[in-house]
Simulated assay, not measured.
Amino acid sequence: MTGPATGAVEEVFGVDAELLNDDRLGRALDAIVSHLEEITAIFGAHAIAEFGIDV
């Protein structure tokens, strides 16, 4: 894969752009689905701390 859409993938993410495809994305989402509540809580806690959100 080449071109502007894939030009910075390796520099930004440290992986070959060809490794980022819909099959891999699907498998990654399948792997994290059982952890969504934990992930949401972690991101929420970080957002609260970072931005001083009054909850």
Rank of each mutant, 00 (worst) to 15 (best):
I32S: 07
V12C: 05
P4I: 06
D30F: 03
R24L: 13
L25C: 09
G7S: 08
V33F: 13
G7C: 03
A5V: 10
R24Q: 11
E10C: 05
N21Q: 05
D16E: 14
R27Y: 14
D16H: 09
D23E: 15
P4S: 11
A17W: 01
A8S: 11
L29E: 10
R24M: 10
G14D: 02
L29P: 00
A5S: 13
I32V: 15
L19I: 03
T6I: 02
D22R: 08
G14Q: 03
V12M: 08
A31K: 07
A8M: 08
V9C: 06
S34L: 07
D23H: 11
G7L: 10
D22F: 04
L25D: 02
V12G: 02
D16G: 04
G3I: 02
D30V: 09
R27Q: 15
E18Q: 09
P4C: 07
R24F: 06
R24T: 10
L25P: 00
A17I: 01
F13V: 13
D30K: 11
A8F: 06
E10W: 08
V33K: 12
R24A: 07
D22V: 12
G7E: 14
G7D: 08
D16W: 04
L29G: 03
V9P: 00
D23L: 11
A5T: 08
L25H: 02
A17L: 03
A17P: 10
V9I: 15
R27P: 01
E18I: 07
A17C: 03
D30P: 00
E11W: 08
V15C: 09
E11C: 06
A17G: 03
L25E: 09
G3L: 04
A28D: 07
V15R: 07
E18D: 13
A8C: 04
V33S: 15
D16A: 14
G14W: 06
V9G: 01
G7T: 05
T6K: 05
G26H: 13
A17Y: 00
E11G: 14
L20C: 12
L25Y: 08
I32C: 09
D30G: 05
F13Y: 14
L29K: 13
E10P: 00
A28M: 15
E11P: 00
E10I: 06
R24Y: 06
V12N: 10
A5N: 13
D30W: 02
P4W: 11
D23N: 11
E18S: 12
A31D: 14
E11T: 14
A5K: 13
A31Y: 02
G3F: 04
V33W: 09
P4N: 12
L19A: 08
F13C: 11
N21A: 03
V15P: 00
E10S: 06
A28P: 00
V12Y: 09
T6W: 04
E10Q: 12
A5G: 05
F13P: 00
A8T: 10
D23W: 02
I32K: 05
